[in-house]
């Protein structure tokens, strides 16, 4: 029966459309289920995951001491040439020369946040911070020095 099949088709089609409309209507009236985050407005309450890889930083303690020995393992591990280690030679009280870090240059603009440098560091001197708002007006600001001025190596770290 052609006419019965035809009507069945029309009924099925209308039904499928109404089911979809019903779903849309549900969300139209249930605002609580909408999970959109209003990003720049919710900055104060925004919590980033603690492992989120945003940029490489070097931790300093209250005595302005860090754990970087200047071994260059991170520089070798980086696939993008983001890190440049410049070393100097300290004279210890006994008169011996000792290698130490002078400048840890970090090019944020070249970094892909892969985390390989953190993996490679034998003394866990660097880690990934979860900051992510890196836009600046001057590209030069993206080249950073990670060891703070006048900082020195923590005692006991080899």
């Amino acid at each position: 029966m052609f006419i019965v099949d035809y009507l069945k088709d029309v009924y099925g089609a209308m039904k499928s459309l109404l089911i979809g409309m019903n779903r849309t209507g549900y969300y139209f009236t249930h605002h609580k289920e909408i999970i959109t985050e209003q990003y720049p407005d919710n900055r104060d309450t925004l919590v980033m995951a603690d492992r989120f890889r945003g940029e490489v930083v070097m931790a300093h303690d209250e005595n302005n001491e860090h754990a970087c020995t200047g071994c260059s393992a991170c520089e070798l591990a980086c696939p993008n040439g983001t890190i440049k280690i410049i070393n100097k030679f300290d004279i210890s009280p006994e008169g011996k020369k000792k290698k130490a870090i002078d400048t840890f240059v970090y090019h944020l603009e070249l970094c892909t946040m892969c985390g390989l440098c953190v993996e490679a560091c034998p003394t866990a001197a660097i880690n990934m911070a979860n900051t992510f708002e890196h836009s600046v007006f001057n590209r030069g600001l993206l080249t950073k020095r990670l060891n703070k001025p006048d900082s020195k190596l923590k005692a006991g770290v080899e």
């Binding site: 995951a49 492992r51 989120f52 890889r53 892909t112 946040m113 892969c114 985390g115 990934m128």
Partner: peptide, 24 residues
């Protein structure tokens, strides 16, 4: 992904020999 691997899309979580970090 973000919580365990540290990134949302380009995770780089697999390393030769296993995974980079333990599960969160």
């Amino acid at each position: 992904m973000e919580e365990t691997c540290g990134a949302r899309l380009t995770m780089n979580y697999m390393v030769p020999g296993g995974v980079m970090m333990d599960l969160h």
